[in-house]
Structures are given as C-alpha cells and as structure tokens.
C-alpha cells in the first residue's frame, strides 16, 4: 500500500516523497542476469572493464526478485516466451523492460522464422528499445541512461492504477486470453478459481 502509488492528487507530502523515490529509483537500476543470445555477450562486455556499467550504479542480479530492469538481449522463441514472461512477472514492482537488439524489437534477422516471436513487446510492456545487431556497448549505456531519464521524469503518484493498465499492451487489450489477463492481475483472479490458482494447485499433486 504505497502512499505515493495510491495517492489520487499531488499533495505536499506525496510530491516530495515522489521526487525522492524518482531520484533513488533512477540512480540504482539493477538488471536481471538473463542472457539469451548474441546480445547477451555485448551486455556482458558492457558489464566488463572497458565500458563498465557499475559507474551508473547498474549491478547485475541473478534473481529477478531483487532486480528492477529486465534487459531482453536476443530473439524470443516460442519455447522461451513463457520463461521470459514468468521471469518478468516474478520481478518486484516497480519494474521496467529494455528490448536490446533488433531481434528483441522485431525478430531482427529471423523475422520470417517459424519459431521466433516478432519482438518481445507482444507479451511484455517495453520501456526502451535499443536497435542494433548487436547494439554496441555505448548504445546499451545510452539506452540505460534514457531509461534513467524516463524514471527520473515520470511521476509515481497514482501509478498503481496506471500500472495495472500498463501491464497489458494497450492496443491488444481486447483479444488477450482471459488466462493471461488473470496472470497479469488485470482480471480479478478469484472469480475464476480454476484459472488463477490452477498452476499452483495442479503442480501440487503432479510432483
């Protein structure tokens, strides 16, 4: 129950707190250590000595629970899609997504392949797109600085309501399957008891 997120109008307390949160969250972005393909090598190069990510307070965390940013470095295949979606959903709020490389933006060199999704924004709300195949480390740093600006400039007041809409890509809102909407928490999970708790319950007896 964050007072900044739930607040409707910008009072004195919420604005100062909001400014503080924006400053803190933009200065310390921890990406998930999720390497998929060739762009993950350029991501590691940016973490290594010459282009050092740590200068901007960006430290790789392997568990999504402690991460803020999900950098998607590479093409998303049909088999990888539920994995990346689950990792994104298991990240704690507030979270952002960077689509790194043209494969993550539009399928890139494999756009006509039968197994590659046309970009990761078909199932994730992407904040920053970094073109390139693979994008140079400087491009990745520039993308992260752009995200830093976006976090520092957008207010978090009343973002709880807005976030809910943000989860589902706005233009595809209608045709989304209910099951996926339930997973995102847009549809209340309780009324379809078989849907919401399905995966937890089903796992229990199968094990």
């Amino acid at each position: 129950m964050g007072i900044v997120d739930r607040a409707e109008e910008a009072g004195f307390i919420t604005t100062t707190l909001d400014k503080l949160l924006r400053w803190g969250r933009s200065r310390s972005m921890w990406p998930v250590n999720a390497g998929i393909a060739c762009c993950s090598l350029e991501m590691m190069t940016t973490g290594a000595g010459r282009y050092d990510f740590d200068r901007f307070g960006i430290m790789f965390r392997s568990s999504p629970r402690q991460a803020d940013v999900l950098i998607v470095p590479g093409p998303i295949t049909k088999k990888m899609q539920p994995i990346v979606q689950r990792v994104y959903n298991q990240m704690a709020e507030p979270r952002w997504v960077i689509a790194m490389g043209s494969c993550a933006i539009s399928g890139g060199a494999f756009a006509d392949s039968y197994n590659v999704l046309p970009g990761c924004d078909t199932f994730l709300p992407v904040d920053v797109y970094i073109p390139g195949c693979p994008p140079r480390p400087e491009a990745l740093i520039y993308g992260c600085l752009k995200l830093k600006e976006q976090i520092a400039n957008t207010s978090f007041i009343g973002s709880a309501a807005r976030n809910k809409a943000l989860y589902v890509p706005p233009d595809l809102g209608e045709e989304w399957p209910d099951e996926l909407l339930r997973q995102f928490g847009v549809l209340p999970a309780d009324d379809s008891s078989e849907g919401g708790s399905r995966d937890v319950g089903e796992v229990r007896d199968e094990g």
Binding site: A37, G74, T77, K79, M80, D112, S113, N115
Partner: peptide, 21 residues
C-alpha cells in the same frame, strides 16, 4: 531449443550469398 530460430529453414529462403549473414 530455447534459441531455435530455424536457421536451416531460413537458409532455404535465402540466396547462397545471403546465408553468410
């Protein structure tokens, strides 16, 4: 299979020179 982009099928859709990409 998490990174199976079907390069072998895509190659059949390219000319001999384009496969090098």
């Amino acid at each position: 299979g998490y990174l199976h982009r079907g390069i072998e099928k895509l190659a059949e859709n390219r000319t001999w020179q384009q496969v090098i990409v």
